[in-house]
């Protein structure tokens, strides 16, 4: 819209704008509600109309995710790792596009925005490598005091709701999403409410990265409308609250308790965007993969 103020003067080319939609089940539908909301830069300059997803859209996304959960969990670990790496490759190829979008969304200078994009790509590569290692780090063989072979292995939890960080539109989102899916979970993401556009462009990357349809579903809209539905949804197994508004935390956790959801509650410093997503030591951790893994212990007798 801001860009629309520039008239198509003679000889200048009128640019083709993108309609930002949702990403559900591998497709890019508008909200079934037909609603949109205006997204602006931090300076207040309008950028685009984003889809304002409804509760119905969210339930559709959860159903799609559930359908994809079994297949994704059964992919080999190496295959999951390669697909995540492929996402990084696609991101790298669109470096300039993402830099422009992040700059506009977060009000950053070009260089700072490019840094966010590069970090995002590197973070994906970091997590991609974990796919076939995490079970060797978290798994154990247990020396029980009787003639049994006993071992413990991690498995994905299932459908994980991710409420994406509000301030860090791309790097924050990728830092929360990558550990969820690399472990074999599927995700329903509620993007940053005020900075949703890079996330929807990321959905285009996901759609062209060999990631099976519906492994990641991305919704834009109002967190106060969507997050409570996600938290209360009985077919969601886990919930990442890093991007939940502090004022909603307690209510979301209470709603999540009803179906014994696993929670990633988030650092206190993530509340107001102070968390430094660029700090590799703090912002990428194998524990964050483990947050949505279930440990399965197996016993078998030993005998002739």
């Amino acid at each position: 819209m801001a860009r629309a103020l520039v008239p198509a003067s003679e000889g200048a080319r009128l640019d083709v704008r993108k309609t930002y939609k949702l990403y559900i089940n591998g497709a890019f539908p508008r909200s079934e509600s037909g609603r949109t909301y205006v997204v602006s830069t931090p300076a207040g300059e309008p950028l685009a109309n984003a889809a304002r997803a409804s509760r119905k859209d969210l339930r559709d996304a959860v159903r799609a995710a559930r359908g994809a959960a079994g297949g994704w969990a059964e992919r080999t670990a190496m295959n999951r790792g390669q697909i995540l790496y492929r996402v990084a490759e696609m991101l790298e190829g669109r470096r300039e596009q993402f830099a422009a979008e992040v700059a506009a969304a977060e009000g950053l200078a070009d260089r700072a925005a490019r840094e966010q994009v590069d970090r995002s790509t590197d973070r994906l590569v970091w997590y991609a490598g974990w796919a076939d290692k995490i079970s060797q780090v978290l798994g154990t063989v247990n020396p029980v005091g009787a003639p049994y072979f006993n071992f413990t292995i991690p498995e994905p939890t299932g459908v994980v709701g991710v409420i994406a960080p509000e301030a860090s539109s791309l790097l924050g989102l990728i830092s929360r999403l990558a550990p969820v899916i690399v472990g074999g979970n599927v995700a329903v993401v509620i993007t940053s409410e005020t900075r949703p556009l890079p996330a929807m462009t990321l959905a285009e990357v996901l759609a062209t990265s060999d990631l099976p349809s519906a492994v990641v579903n991305v919704l834009t809209g109002l967190k106060k409308e969507l997050a409570p539905v996600l938290a209360a949804h009985a077919d969601v197994d886990g919930l990442d609250l890093w991007g939940a508004p502090p004022s909603m935390r307690a209510a979301l956790e209470e709603a999540a308790a009803e179906s014994v959801k696993r929670l990633a509650r988030g650092a206190r410093s993530a509340d107001d965007g102070r968390f430094d997503w660029a700090d590799d030591r703090r912002a990428q951790r194998p524990e964050w993969i483990a947050a949505f893994l279930e440990m399965k212990t197996v016993w078998h007798p030993i005998g002739v």
Binding site: T140, N142, P143, V144, G145, A146, Y148, N150, T152, E294, M295, K296, T297, V298, W299, H300, P301
Partner: peptide, 19 residues
């Protein structure tokens, strides 16, 4: 399930994660 017993059941051990 968090614990799977194959050809046995209800075995417990301090070294063996349960949940």
């Amino acid at each position: 399930a968090g614990v799977v017993w194959a050809n046995t059941f209800n075995r417990f051990d301090p070294t063996s994660p349960f949940g």
